[in-house]
C-alpha cells in the first residue's frame, strides 16, 4: 500500500517537474509546478511530517505560485521568449544532469550514508502533535534564531522599500 502510494505520487511529482521545463506556455509550466509541489506535500505527509506538508502547500503551492502567476500575467506570454543560449549549453546541461543523477543513485544505496535519527520520535509526534512539537522547539531551544529571523525580515522590508520605492 505504502509503496504503491509512494510510486504513484512520486511519478506525479516527476511528471510535474518534467512539465515545468518542457511545456511551451508559461502558465502551463506554472500549473505543472503546482502539481509537483502538491505531490511533494503528499510525500511529506507520508513521512509523518504533517506540518511541513501544510507549509509546503500554503507557502509554495499557495503564496509563491500566486506571485509566479502574477509575474507571468503581467509580463504577457511572449515576453519570456529568450533566444539567448550559451553555445553547447544543452549538451553540458544533459551531461552534468546525468552525472548528478548517477551520483544520487549511487548515494541513495541503503546504508551508504547513514544519518542519525532526530530527537523527536514517531511516538512523540503521535502524542504531542507535529505542529506543537515544532512550536515548542521554536520557543524554547531555538528562541534566539527565531527572534533573529524577525531582524532578517526587517532587513528584507527596508531593502524592498529602498530598491522599489520610486521616490525615497
Amino acid at each position: 500500500m505504502e509503496l504503491a502510494l509512494f510510486l504513484s505520487v512520486g511519478a506525479i511529482a516527476i511528471l510535474g517537474a518534467v512539465g515545468v521545463v518542457t511545456l511551451r506556455n508559461a502558465v502551463h509550466s506554472a500549473l505543472s509546478l503546482i502539481t509537483n509541489m502538491v505531490a511533494l506535500a503528499v510525500l511529506f505527509l507520508m513521512l509523518n511530517a504533517q506540518f511541513v506538508a501544510i507549509v509546503q502547500i500554503i507557502v509554495y503551492a499557495g503564496a509563491v505560485m500566486v506571485l509566479f502567476l502574477f509575474v507571468i500575467m503581467l509580463l504577457g506570454e511572449k515576453a519570456q521568449e529568450s533566444r539567448e543560449r550559451l553555445p553547447g549549453q544543452r549538451v553540458f546541461a544533459i551531461a552534468l544532469g546525468a552525472l548528478l543523477l548517477a551520483e544520487i543513485i549511487y548515494v541513495a544505496q541503503p546504508n551508504l550514508l547513514p544519518g542519525l535519527p532526530g530527537k523527536a520520535t514517531t511516538d512523540m509526534v503521535a502524542q504531542g502533535g507535529n505542529v506543537q512539537l515544532v512550536g515548542r522547539l521554536l520557543l524554547s531551544d531555538y528562541v534566539f534564531p527565531f527572534e533573529l529571523t524577525s531582524v532578517l525580515l526587517l532587513v528584507a522590508i527596508v531593502g524592498a522599500v529602498v530598491l522599489a520605492k520610486r521616490k525615497l
Partner: peptide, 21 residues
C-alpha cells in the same frame, strides 16, 4: 550554532545586496 551563524550571514548578505544597488 550553525543556525545562528547562517542567520547572521543572511542578515549581513541581504543588507549588502541592497547597499550594493
Amino acid at each position: 550554532d550553525l543556525i545562528v551563524i547562517f542567520l547572521g550571514l543572511e542578515i549581513l548578505s541581504l543588507s549588502l545586496y541592497v547597499l550594493a544597488g
